[in-house]
Design a protein around this nucleic acid. Structure first.
Lengths: 188, 188, 188, 188
DNA sequence: TATGAATGAGGCTTCATTCAT
DNA sequence: GATGAATGAAGCCTCATTCAT
């Protein structure tokens, strides 16, 4: 048996990028195979179903990409403001490399009314994101209020990423971080 | 001459809803025809091309739906806060009737990297929305700052609509209005 | 009852030109209606079936166009050479006005293996053409030989018309006439 | 890897026959797939576009079929008359096997006014044919006159093939060869 | 007769997925 | 596992023809 031409990790990474750019319905198995430098048939040895793949891409993106962002919130060596700043920087990188967009938001729109099962990992990601952000604000606002605010902040980030994609202006993502930072500082 | 089974206006309204729910790539001509109670061939009698239709649906939605929202900002009989409240109410209605979502945001995601020409009417809608919102804040913030804030607010609305769609919780849209309202009042 | 917007004669003339240019399968009812300045529905009041129309166009072209050419052969005031010259001039006009091509040849190719019934009027036209040409040569060659030669000449004309169409060079049609004329003169 | 159900060569051969019989517009992708014992989808695996296929069929027919005819003209072991005789025999075979017709002439008629790009390989074929024929006559007529005559002869062949198709009488093709042969001999 | 609207059938093409070496 | 070939279903669109005013 030959060794695989591509690792599972690399395959999911490339598919993640492709889906993020073109959406679920806008991405064909051919595009995914090409993105992985595989033929379509070989691609099917790795993943034999678009829906299944999509689900795993979402989970992988949460684990691999999302956690790199969320874990910053747990770094106790940093002040809340520092953590928020770092998360902002990381966000900007994650949501604009290669193409502007958030995989979760992009897929959510395609999936909401026809692929409901995909909404589960999407919500899990957003929940985790909000949880991470709430940790930054809990000190200043208390737990319930921090949670509320964090959830709203996730919405603001998603909105900003969408606007950044539409206007091709990544700076819009930063603005959200700046505003949150300003507010965090004002509460001290 | 046989009477049309559907008016152009009704057709665009139904297509607008269908696209909003399923996105550009997720919507088939069959779905659109069915939504209009037409056969596919008859549908083509009215609109002869999916791209063309999409463009007109965007323009129509801007004109017909968007303006109903944007014009509130010009109602001089009302105070800024009243206007913002009313726009909030209207928004909630527009973005959650039948299904939660903003046509412009939904289509933007499908179109960004493959149907660039569709981005023009999308940006026009968002620009107009921001312009309308800025009118509500100009008194309190001055023109340049009102514009900046309005643009950000549009992003926040888009984000909230996306989150509302994902969590099936229309209330999230209201929260944006409430926050903006609170801030408007605080500036007086 | 309103008077027809177009006479049967004019309609057949325009359809004849359209078919000659684009062939049977290459011509749509829409193209024919447009060529007649009619809507498709109105067109169907005049002719309610493409095959039927095609047949009538062929017959009409034979009667109306072909005879203008063939009758020259019967003009006893002219010498054979004069008649041949005149027929050559007329041919050039008929087969190159608006577009280069012979309706009969064009339709024959589309019809041979799928619309056999259309071959009848096509052969009738070609037979008549050969008959006319034979009259020019009967004096010089005698009846059987004139007939043989005329039939071959029709083939040469059809070939030349096809080449003229392909190379967009109407002059090629003349060459056939010149050659035939030279030969006619040489036999005296 | 699964073995192909058909070679490229066989596929082009069968498509060539189908197009020759029914013309470009008269041939559907379904007919072509069926002619190759393939499903429509499989056919697209081999050839992904009707226009592209048509072009390649024309080029292939020139290379594969045409050259078998044209190369006879270069056979120096034979006298001009022998070469002409052989070319006549070969022509008869090529233009009447399975169905009577010349692919180039048939497609030319469909393509002249709507698919101009297809005219290029068609003209190339006819040019080559004329060039080959001119070689047979160059000794007797000199180069310029041989070229002129050969070009005319191609037209005569095309006309005869068309007449043979219309009257279902392959003998008409022979007549052209006979006439040319007689003339060639008379010039010695 | 004139016409805009309606439509089933069919044409071209793409897609997700499977097969066989 | 890798791959070129195969394929049913579906997607977009056109066509000849009919309907209803």
């Amino acid at each position: 048996m030959r060794p695989p031409k591509i690792t599972r990790d690399e395959l999911l990474a490339r598919c993640s990028q492709t889906f993020r750019k073109y959406g679920f319905h806008g991405t064909t198995m051919d595009m995914l195979a090409t993105a992985c430098d595989l033929t379509k048939a070989t691609f099917y040895h790795h993943y034999s179903n678009k829906d299944e793949l999509m689900k795993d891409v979402l989970v992988w993106t949460h684990e691999r990409i999302g956690k790199a962002l969320f874990n910053i919130a747990d770094d106790e060596r940093l002040s809340p403001a520092e953590r928020l700043t770092l998360m902002g920087k990381k966000s900007k990188k994650l949501f604009q490399d290669d193409a502007i967009g958030c995989l979760m938001g992009v897929v959510a729109i395609d999936a909401t009314y026809t692929k409901n099962e995909l909404m589960v990992p999407i919500r899990a990601f957003l929940d985790d994101w909000a949880l991470a952000l709430s940790k930054v604000f809990v000190e200043a606002l208390g737990k319930p209020e921090a949670k509320r605010y964090a959830r709203q902040l996730v919405g603001e980030y998603e909105g900003a990423i969408l606007m950044a994609r539409i206007y091709n202006d990544p700076g819009l993502i930063d603005a959200v971080t700046q505003k949150a930072l300003a507010w965090l500082k004002s509460t001290i």
